[in-house]
Design a protein around this nucleic acid. Sequence first.
DNA 1: AGAATACCAACTAATTTAGTAGGATATATG
DNA 2: CATATATCCTACTAAATTAGTTGGTATTCT
Lengths: 133, 133
Amino acid sequence: MKFSTRSTYGLRAMINLAQNWQKGSIPLSAIAKNENISLGYLERIFAVLKKAKLVKSEKGASGGYVLSSSPGDIDVYSIINALDGEASSFHCMDEGGKVYCNEKCECSVEPALLKISQAISAALKNIKLKDLI
Amino acid sequence: MKFSTRSTYGLRAMINLAQNWQKGSIPLSAIAKNENISLGYLERIFAVLKKAKLVKSEKGASGGYVLSSSPGDIDVYSIINALDGEASSFHCMDEGGKVYCNEKCECSVEPALLKISQAISAALKNIKLKDLI
DNA sequence: AGAATACCAACTAATTTAGTAGGATATATG
DNA sequence: CATATATCCTACTAAATTAGTTGGTATTCT
């Protein structure tokens, strides 16, 4: 289970923003250069992060992105969940955690997969950006 | 971060084996039918699980697969790690946990990604097959 | 002998991923 | 006001991965 580059890039960028939090808006071009990530790709990643209300943007010269709340209030789960879909869920599990592997599914594995899912979510929710600086 | 069907199928099959542990070898055809998974695909999944020494096989009629140790001794981390590569690692992180996003990488995110990686691994190592029956 | 099983390799269609290209819109600053 | 610097938006593409199929071979129980 590897994280996609999308998640990885997103996380690295968010950590970058957290490190420069007091400096106000940071343009993506700076982050792209810092982290050696393609600017165009990073733009689309930030479109998602913005939609998830994890960052705010300011247009125009000297604009850029800022965290929408303090590094202590944003957890890793939210970031990964926004970028790679429902974090720690399984192929045969829908958004609510319901398993649908069989038609007549009184599926014996449902509680098992759910348990694993929740363990990972809990672990990620417990890590805040502040802890990663 | 979704688990691939490979991991999901593998987990479901392993849970199935754990449930039938006392019955000895179970043929893949039974699991495939039970779990509604394509037999050919399941065969390749079990080739990996066997290589990782998580299951043992017996050829021939009335053969099949058994867990290599008791359901209390096999954890979810081992299964997912075998099937989907180093569990909870990142795009820019090699097997040892070293980050290589930049050439001149005294990379500031390395400890961060490592911390996340380890949190997930720990959560998964803590769940045994026995806990999922 | 025959059936059931593990084991193995090659091929394929579909999807996802990561990245590129080219622009439109907004805004701070000289 | 002009310009540079941003976000924002859409479409395209090459590469990789994924899930699955097919057609076998080797082994062993009955």
